[in-house]
Every structure is written in C-alpha cells, then in structure tokens.
C-alpha cells in the first residue's frame, strides 16, 4: 500500500491518478498510523510553503514525515518542504535535506515560474547511479512548474539550470525527492514512479 500525504496541497489527485494508471493500491491520508504502516509514502505538493507547513504542524505531520523509515518521495513543494528553510513566507521546513529554498531572481529573458519541459539534469555527467534513475537518461525532459528552487548540495541527485543551478532530484537515506512532476512527465515520469515503487 502506498500512502499519499493528505494536506492542503493542490495536485494530490494527479498523483492518485498516476498510481492508479500503474495499477498500484494507494490511499490519501493524514493519519499518522496509516502513513507509518504504508510500504512507501508520497509527499506531493503544489501550493505555498508557509501555509503548507502550518497545516502539517497543526496535525503533527511534520514530525511524522521526518521520522518515516520506509522510502518517501517528495514532489515539487513536497521536496522544498523537506529542506531546512524556504524564502517563500520565510518558512522553517522539515530539515531532511540540508539546504535552503530560494526564489528565482528576476531575469530579463527567462520567465518565472520555470514552467514546462526541461532536462532532469543539464549536464550529461550529472547522471546518477541512483535506482530512482534506472532506465532513465538524466537528460530526459520532465515537467516543471516552480518559482522557488532548492540550492544544490551533497544530497542532490541531479542539478538542472534555469537562471540558476537548482536541485532537480534529491536523496538522503530513505528520502527521495523531485522538483519536477513525475505524475505529469509522460513515460519518463511513469518510469521514475515505477523505479520508486520498486525501491
């Protein structure tokens, strides 16, 4: 059973649909016991960081998520909330990944949000032997929508570049995360979700 963390985030239905297409049993829940008992946990998210953190804290989910021991996949805002701090709403986050989340600076030609299809990693050498990237070329295109980005650090599995280099995938222990939306990234996204489910 895959548990999807239920909170005030936007795209939970998309994740459910993607898991259903892969034929995987899943529940959307904010019950700590169900999250702890799940084989794997997906922490999705589209929304605003401070509002999301407030919601998680009010329900004690901040501690629950941090202490999960099975594979966890953060997506987009979910990944950003797994960092230590976000400039969005000056928010202290979960602190799983030791890096901060910043807003893309204004740019004369590149529009913010970074929206659309871009490489997982900008450089071929950025490829990783991570099981999450099995059968995936790190230069494959995936779908991004974000105005804030995680500064690359040693937890970065892949680094993409848009205005600034940013972490497009992260991993530390049992915690995995993507800045892009695998649930909206066509066959490449399905492969990545399959890889996560096979961890």
């Amino acid at each position: 059973m895959i548990a999807i963390v239920k909170y005030n985030a936007g795209n939970i239905g998309s994740v459910t649909n993607a898991l259903n297409r892969l034929g995987v049993d899943n529940i959307v829940t904010d019950d700590p016991k169900e999250l702890q008992a799940a084989d794997k946990v997906i922490f999705p998210g589209v929304g605003e960081a401070s509002t999301a953190m407030k919601y998680l804290k009010e329900r004690g989910l901040d501690k629950v998520i941090k202490e999960l021991t099975q594979p966890v996949l953060g997506i987009c805002l979910g990944m950003q909330l797994m960092c230590t701090y976000s400039e969005e709403g000056s928010t202290d986050c979960l602190g799983i990944f030791d890096t901060i989340v910043k807003k893309f600076p204004d740019n004369p030609t590149l529009k913010v949000p970074h929206m659309g299809w871009n490489n997982i990693a900008s450089e071929p050498s950025n490829g990783s032997s991570s099981p999450l990237l099995k059968n995936i070329d790190s230069q494959d295109d995936v779908y991004y929508v974000h105005s804030y980005y995680a500064v690359p650090n040693e937890d970065s599995l892949a680094v993409c570049n848009y205005i600034n280099p940013f972490a497009s995938m992260m991993n530390k222990g049992n915690f995995y995360a993507t800045q892009f939306h695998p649930e909206k990234s066509a066959q490449v996204g399905e492969q990545l979700l399959t890889n996560f489910l096979n961890l």
């Binding site: 590149l110 970074h114 299809w117 490489n119 900008s122 450089e123 570049n161 848009y162 205005i163 280099p165």
Partner: peptide, 10 residues
C-alpha cells in the same frame, strides 16, 4: 552549463 534548455511546447 547551458542556462536555458526549457523546451518550446506544442
């Protein structure tokens, strides 16, 4: 590093 490989969408 190439700064912008954001693809044009169809």
């Amino acid at each position: 590093m190439q700064n912008n490989m954001l693809k044009k969408r169809i």
